[in-house]
């Protein structure tokens, strides 16, 4: 049994390869982008809107309000990155109800890639907000002696982001795979439903943590957060 869809390689030429993770990601990107394009082609600015537009507006406004509620002053600046994180992870996890589907978030490479994106986005937004000197000075707070611990914390939380998402999604897929081979009828369906819930929660947790990191980095004169991911699964 394979633990990661990375191992399902369909084509390889030296370092380049085309595995299931990348292909699935492309399909998901295509569906998300095409769906968004189809729905947003004819948006109405009047009082009467279509159901699909209403759904998208609820989704986008919900994401924007969540970002604003966590503490980011201008949610429109961050909704592209954070909203895409949530939509990609949640849509990727929701599709587990499709037979034979293996979510790309079950690949540690994917989760690591997303965590690296967050890892890079946090200082990027921080520098955009406070400038390079202002951002770097946050690593010396409360005292310069905390610099190594701050750096370790930065790396460790990125690793925690990646492993948390990978572990939860991969374990769900593996558990369902094992249960299908043992008790092929009722129990795997229940676990699949549970996997849906877990996937949505993980998407939410990943996005919220990324938002919190960015909010902490962009808070003017603020202190570094004391690892808000402590206590999560």
């Amino acid at each position: 049994m394979e633990l990661s869809p990375d191992h399902s390689v369909y084509w390889q030429h030296g370092f380049l390869k085309l595995n299931l993770t990348i292909i699935t990601t492309w399909v998901l990107m295509l569906v998300l982008s095409a769906g968004a394009w189809v729905i947003t082609r004819r948006l109405s600015t009047g009082e009467k809107v279509s159901r699909w537009q209403a759904m998208l507006e609820i989704l986008v406004l919900g994401i924007r309000d969540q970002i604003g509620g966590i503490g980011l002053q201008q949610p429109q600046r961050y909704i592209g990155f954070l909203g895409t994180l949530f939509l990609f992870i949640s849509f990727s996890n929701l599709c587990v109800i499709l037979p034979g589907y293996v979510p790309p978030t079950g690949s540690l490479s994917t989760t690591a890639a997303l965590a690296l994106c967050v890892f890079l986005a946090v200082p990027l937004f921080g520098i955009m907000r406070s400038g390079l000197r202002g951002y770097l000075s946050t690593y010396l707070k409360p005292t310069p002696f905390m610099l190594p611990f701050n750096l370790i914390g930065e790396v460790s939380r990125t690793l925690a982001l990646a492993v948390r998402l990978f572990g939860n999604i991969m374990s769900g897929t593996v558990i369902v795979g094992i249960l299908v081979s043992i008790t092929p009828l009722l129990f795997p369906a229940v676990m699949n439903a549970l996997g849906l819930l877990t996937g949505m929660i993980q998407a939410y947790i990943f996005s919220v943590l990324a938002t919190v990191y960015i909010a902490a980095a962009t808070r003017e004169g603020g202190e570094r957060p004391a690892h808000p991911d402590q206590g999560t699964k």
């Binding site: 595995n19 990348i22 982008s33 909203g83 895409t84 990609f88 490479s109 890639a113």
Partner: peptide
């Protein structure tokens, strides 16, 4: 795969 997924994600950010 990590590099490809980073690029994929950034492309998806742009698309969305």
């Amino acid at each position: 795969t990590i590099i490809a997924q980073i690029i994929n994600f950034l492309v998806l950010v742009w698309l969305l």
